[in-house]
């Protein structure tokens, strides 16, 4: 009996799910927008094969630089966002392009995260010359503009998705390493860590159980922001002809192709850029919102 009345009371206090979602949206407009944009990008990348209306790599010179369907009075164009310089469907290429952007950025972030966490933990937890050595390398990497570094290395190695991923991973670990090292230095002297040490906790156990959970939220925020940055960097490199192989549909590559047709076929230059911007904005909004929620210090 008692439980039933309690449940009734609970219902009165707790608004319906719809209302709660509505309230959440009103309270976190930027976060919700971020989540929506990121979800669209991930969904598009995962189901590209199903969503894409045409074959993204099949040239069809009859439809070369076709105007977008809704602007075409002749009824010749069958492409929603128009055709590119060899008559491929722009929309399908943009959909497949999402795969490249996300694969490169997420894999790049994973590599830099693992490497950065590992080196950051070693530097912060064990200190001494490890710390000096790792932080010196970090300083050098920070001093060298990434774009210049990437231009030199990519021109040496040639285009390729895996090469961009490795370069991003091997340069951006510094951000994670510094973050984690800083947190560890401030956590190390805390009483509960000292206590864990005193009762005979091993290094691994202390790091895994007490230190990493404490830095997890900062790491997630940084990782989200880096995904946004990596998408931009990959697109820039590909635009310069130093990123993804030009035969693979990628947003940066599409913009590079469009350069000679900007004056005659604006759509080839507009839509791939919109795709980049929306996706990057999504991750930035998400990261910003997560930081506000998870990290009250910022």
């Amino acid at each position: 009996m008692v439980q039933v009345t309690e449940n009734k009371d609970m219902k009165k206090i707790k608004p319906s799910l719809g209302k709660r979602i509505g309230k959440f949206i009103v309270k976190n407009p930027t976060g919700v927008l971020g989540i929506i944009l990121v979800s669209i990008a991930i969904f598009t990348a995962l189901f590209a094969g199903v969503i894409a209306p045409f074959d993204a790599s099949k040239a069809d010179l009859a439809h070369r630089l076709d105007v977008p369907m809704w602007l075409d009075d002749t009824g010749k164009s069958q492409y929603l966002l128009g055709g590119d310089q060899v008559g491929r469907d722009l929309l399908s290429r943009i959909i497949y392009g999402a795969q490249i952007s996300l694969i490169v950025s997420i894999s790049g972030v994973l590599i830099s995260l693992v490497l950065g966490t590992f080196l950051g933990v070693i530097a912060g937890y064990f200190g001494k010359w490890f710390d000096d050595f790792i932080m010196r390398i970090a300083d050098i990497q920070l001093a060298f503009p990434f774009m210049l570094f990437a231009i030199v290395i990519m021109s040496a190695l040639g285009t390729g998705i895996e090469k961009i991923i490795i370069i991003l991973g091997l340069t951006y670990w510094v951000g994670f390493a510094r973050l984690i090292r800083g947190e560890i230095l401030s956590l190390k002297e805390q009483e509960y860590i000292q206590a864990a040490k005193a009762i005979g906790g091993t290094h691994i156990k202390i790091i895994m159980k007490h230190i990493l959970p404490n830095v997890a939220s900062s790491i997630i925020v940084l990782a989200t922001m880096y995904i946004a940055e990596f998408i931009l960097l990959e697109a820039s490199l590909t635009f310069l002809g130093l990123g993804v192989d030009p035969t693979i549909p990628s947003w940066g590559g599409m913009l590079a192709d469009s350069r000679n047709y900007v004056t005659t076929a604006w759509w080839t230059a507009v839509f791939p850029g919109v795709a980049i911007m929306m996706t990057v904005l999504g991750f930035n909004l998400l990261g910003d919102w997560l930081r506000d929620r998870l990290d009250p210090n910022m």
């Binding site: 697109a235 820039s236 507009v270």
Partner: peptide
């Protein structure tokens, strides 16, 4: 500001040219 940091600079250039 967020839109500013989300813009690919080369694309912004192309748009301004357009």
């Amino acid at each position: 500001s967020l839109i500013g940091i989300s813009f690919p600079n080369f694309w912004l250039g192309i748009m301004l040219i357009l």
